[in-house]
Design a protein around this nucleic acid. Structure first.
Lengths: 152, 152
DNA sequence: GGTCAAATTAAAATCATTACAATAATTAGA
DNA sequence: TCTAATTATTGTAATGATTTTAATTTGACC
């Protein structure tokens, strides 16, 4: 964990930003909740537990900054809020998501899956792909088990 | 066009909703701007030209309703607004988008592209896919032409 | 024509996010 | 070290999108 913070610090410095205490606290929360998909408000509340003096605006700005540096990805699942997701170190592409329409859970797919599709798109549409967002909506394995019969 | 309205009307009736004049005006605007990706506000302004007495809240409710009936798809490209996109009639899957990070244009891909990927996901993650969202961010062909040299 | 539920309206409320202005911390040079 | 200049932070106000409310209208059905 410290190693990753150290690397993020370097990344900030390389763009002449500083890892201030507030920013560090925010990054720590993200690292501790790597599995989740926190909204800005979620992050704010968690950071506040350790650093009660932080302001919501600072969290927003920090997340925005981390987003620009590609440390986190900003995603939107269609509920009204933006969520922030730590990027795997060294990941070249943004991972995908499985959103369950029953229970609302969000799982991640780290595998690429889109390599071939991207080649087709770049060639057929002459479109230079920089990033992508792929989300599947459906029923997760857990909900399928809980509801074997659909008859009302 | 009248045919499609007629079919949408039937679809509404089958769920015991009515195609009120306001709803019809809204659907007409969507049909006339099938290529675009209008926000609720955009739709509102366009409907207002023909039916000046309509309210913004009604447009929101109508779009929400059409979204539930799968007549339109609600999408979100990361700017602060939801956009509404008419579904191709008979389309089984949601089409994909190419968002240009230079000029902001949005092009559509009607081709499926994800058939194989979905099979893999359903099998490997035991996830029952109902819908998907796939958006590529990058440089569209038009912007690539306008900016052949990147050196500042 | 009367009744009832659904739909619409305008206005107000809500929610996420951003802008602002004042304050505090940090840095670079004298 | 001291001072000016820069950068970051804070709380709050403002903004903008969307939703709710409460009152009114519409339209199908008897």
């Amino acid at each position: 964990m410290e190693k990753r913070i150290e690397r993020i610090k370097k990344q900030l410095h390389s763009q002449s930003y500083k890892l201030t205490p507030q920013r560090e606290a925010t990054v720590r929360v993200l690292l501790e909740h790597e599995e989740d998909h926190l909204s800005a408000e979620d992050v704010y509340l968690l950071v506040k537990e350790k650093s009660p003096e932080i302001g919501l605006a600072t969290v927003y700005r920090t997340l925005e900054l981390l987003s620009e540096l590609k440390v986190v990805d900003k995603i939107n699942f269609g509920d009204g809020v933006s969520r922030y997701d730590l990027r795997q170190e060294g990941a070249t592409h943004f991972h995908h998501h499985l959103v369950c329409i029953e229970c609302g859970s969000v799982d991640e797919i780290q595998e690429d899956l889109l390599g071939d599709v991207e080649k087709v798109v770049e060639k057929s549409w002459n479109f230079k792909i920089k990033d992508h967002r792929l989300t599947f909506h459906g029923i997760c394995s857990r909900c399928q088990e809980n509801k074997p019969t659909e008859t009302s």
